[in-house]
């Protein structure tokens, strides 16, 4: 999904930068707010950033005989909502553009728009939809992570098609060509990323339950007043606990 340095005409480079900038600024404020209002989230915020950092560094082989890398932006979008990922994703892209010659400064806007804006939002939408349809947390995580990955690459393909429409078949032809490069290769990676997301959230639901409840990812365990808790039958208290564990 990294459009190489200099590979977008100046007008497109500027246009995508203008399009992505408000999201990134809003994202920076969202991160600041999160850290100020919920300092206990900082650890998980770090985990979300680290997850994207790892996954976007690993190039994996795919069925098409090409290799590509996952995005890992879905996890943070699910935990902290998409704006936070607009900042974290852009930081990752900046690191890669400056140190790895992967992506670039002129294409940072376009790449940020696909990787840090469209991916997280599409993934978050898929997550919410799956949960609303009764898919459960892990089902939602799988859908959210996979869709964030795919949506990022589809956006890149469309950005390239817009910049380089085919001389004969025009925009549609170019879109088909670039989607051919990215989309099929990305399907197994998206599935793999969904499974990795499930693994991550399985660990988090056990070890970071209070944070997930505060973030609204898990339904909080009914908080009982100490007096009420004592009045409750032990069996009943244990019963609700078990139910929570099942979710």
């Amino acid at each position: 999904m990294h459009i190489a340095e200099g590979f977008l005409p100046p007008v497109h480079a500027v246009g995508w930068t203008i399009a992505a900038a408000p999201f990134v600024v809003h994202g920076a404020r969202a991160v600041g707010k999160e850290v100020r209002e919920r300092p206990e989230s900082t650890l998980l915020l770090g985990a979300a950033g680290a997850f994207t950092f790892v996954l976007s560094a690993i190039k994996l082989p795919s069925v098409t005989g090409s290799s590509s890398h996952p995005t890992g932006t879905g996890a943070g979008a699910i935990l902290f909502r998409p704006p936070v990922m607009a900042l974290l994703g852009t930081v990752v892209l900046l690191f890669q553009a400056l140190l790895l010659a992967h992506g670039g400064l002129t294409t940072l806007g376009a790449n940020a728009f696909s990787f840090a804006v469209v991916g997280p939002w599409a993934g978050y939408a898929a997550y919410r939809l799956t949960r609303r349809c009764g898919g459960g947390l892990l089902g939602g995580v799988f859908a959210g992570m996979a869709v964030a990955d795919l949506a990022t690459y589809i956006t890149t393909a469309l950005q390239l098609a817009l910049a380089f429409p085919d001389t004969e078949s025009g925009l549609a032809g170019a879109a088909a060509k670039f989607l051919g490069v990215f989309a099929v290769t990305q399907i197994p990676l998206a599935i793999g990323e969904g499974l990795l997301g499930v693994l991550l959230f399985r660990v988090l639901t056990v070890n970071a339950r209070p944070e997930l409840e505060r973030l609204g990812v898990l339904t909080p365990t009914p908080v009982l007043e100490p007096e009420k808790a004592r009045v409750l039958e032990p069996e009943k208290a244990r019963g609700t606990d078990d139910e929570e564990g099942q979710r």
Partner: peptide, 10 residues
């Protein structure tokens, strides 16, 4: 297959 990166393919 060579497993070239999709980014360079693009």
């Amino acid at each position: 297959s060579e497993y070239a990166g999709t980014d360079s393919r693009a």
